[in-house]
C-alpha cells in the first residue's frame, strides 16, 4: 500500500538507446531519480539533451532499453500493451505544444474521450467534461471544433482532457510553446493551481527558464544525463 507522500515515479538506472541506421544513439544514460506525489517538476535542457525522451520513457509512451521504472508503485516494464494503455488512461494525462486535440471532435467530445476510453459511463463523462470546461471558463466552446478555437483555448481544452480522469501525473511537453505570453501565464497559473489545490503531480518539459520558474523542482539535463536536480525558487 502506498502512502500519500510515496514516490509516484521511481526510475532506476534508466537507459534509452535508439538504433539508427549505422550507429546507436544513447538518448538517456543511466538515469536514476524519484518524484514524489504532488511535486511540480520542470525538466530543462538544451536541444538534444534528452528531455523529451525522458518524458516519453517515464510516461510509458516509449519503451526503455534498460533499467527499472516504477510508476505509482507499479513496474511498468512488465506490463503488456493493453494493461499499460489502461494504466496510462487512469494514471496519466498529457498536454503537448501542438495541443493534439482530435480535429473531428468538438471541445466537449475531446474532454469526454479519455473518460470513455477509461470506460466511465456516458452520462458521467459528459457532466464531468462540462464541469471542467466551465471551471476553465471555456464552456461556450463546448460545441466547437478545435479549428474554430484559438491556440490558448485549445490548450485549455487539452488541459481539461488531460485531467478528466483525475490522473496521478500530468505530463506537459512545452505546453506554452505555441501561445502568446499572456495566455502562457494563464496556462501556467492553471497548472500551478492544479498542483497546489488537487495535489496533482506535474512534470513539465520546457526550454524556457521563465516557464520553469513555475515549478518547485528543476531538473537540468545535458547529453542524456541529469546535470543537476534542485528545488527551483519561485
Amino acid at each position: 500500500m502506498f502512502k500519500v507522500n510515496d514516490d509516484v515515479i521511481s526510475a532506476i538506472n534508466i537507459t534509452k538507446v535508439y538504433n539508427m541506421a549505422d550507429e546507436k544513439v544513447i538518448a538517456l544514460k543511466d538515469i536514476t531519480l524519484k518524484i514524489k506525489r504532488g511535486e511540480f517538476v520542470a525538466i530543462m535542457g538544451p536541444s538534444g539533451s534528452g528531455k523529451t525522451t525522458f518524458l516519453n520513457c517515464m510516461s510509458t509512451l516509449d519503451d526503455i532499453t534498460s533499467g527499472k521504472l516504477y510508476i505509482d508503485g507499479k513496474d511498468v516494464d512488465t506490463m503488456n500493451d493493453a494493461s499499460r494503455s489502461a494504466f496510462r488512461s487512469i494514471k496519466m494525462g498529457f498536454i503537448f505544444q501542438n495541443y493534439n486535440l482530435i480535429p473531428v471532435l468538438t471541445a466537449l467530445e475531446n474532454v469526454e474521450l479519455p473518460m470513455m476510453i477509461a470506460n466511465k459511463s456516458v452520462k458521467y463523462s459528459k457532466s464531468r467534461a462540462l464541469a471542467l470546461l466551465n471551471k476553465m471558463m471555456i464552456a461556450t466552446a463546448a460545441g466547437r471544433r478545435p479549428s474554430e478555437l484559438s491556440g490558448g483555448m485549445q490548450q485549455k481544452v487539452a488541459i481539461c482532457r488531460a485531467i478528466s480522469n483525475n490522473p496521478a501525473i500530468l505530463w506537459a511537453d512545452e505546453p506554452t510553446g505555441n501561445i502568446d505570453s499572456d495566455m502562457s501565464k494563464e496556462i501556467m497559473e492553471m497548472l500551478v493551481n492544479l498542483n497546489k489545490n488537487e495535489h496533482l503531480t506535474i512534470i513539465l518539459v520546457t526550454h524556457d527558464a521563465n516557464i520553469a520558474k513555475y515549478a518547485k523542482r528543476l531538473i537540468k539535463m545535458r547529453d542524456g544525463i541529469i546535470e543537476s536536480d534542485s528545488s527551483a525558487s519561485n
Binding site: 494503455s85 494504466f87 496510462r88 474521450l113 476510453i117 482532457r161
Partner: peptide, 15 residues
C-alpha cells in the same frame, strides 16, 4: 499525431 494522442490517452493498439 491523432493516433499517437489516442494511444497516450490509453487506447490500445486493438482499439
Amino acid at each position: 499525431q491523432e493516433i499517437g494522442m489516442l494511444r497516450s490517452m490509453g487506447m490500445t493498439e486493438k482499439e
